[in-house]
Amino acid sequence: MTDRFAPGSRVVTYLHDPPHHTRLPRYARGKRGVVVEPEGRAELADVSARGRADAPVEQVYAVRFEARDLWGEGDHQVVLDLWESYLEEYEEGAADER
């Protein structure tokens, strides 16, 4: 299976607020970042956390965020490891509200 995102891809995380376990922290929801690299495929934690053996296996990506995009200020960066279905392509000029 090919990866949906290549290193350097601009992505935006979903803004969904799921009623179950997830590994996308709320501080990084609906935020723009850049894919650093694929990290290897893993069972989607959101489904596996329900004790299901049929959790989809997806690529996980290291995604880099600028502090100012997360918090409105700061000069550091934060890298998170995010499952593919947490991410959408981000196109320049697209509406920021998602």
Partner: peptide
């Protein structure tokens, strides 16, 4: 100095 914080949210 540029700081990068690595938040271990998956298997790495």
């Amino acid at each position: 100095t540029r700081i990068t914080v690595w938040d271990s949210s998956a298997e790495t």
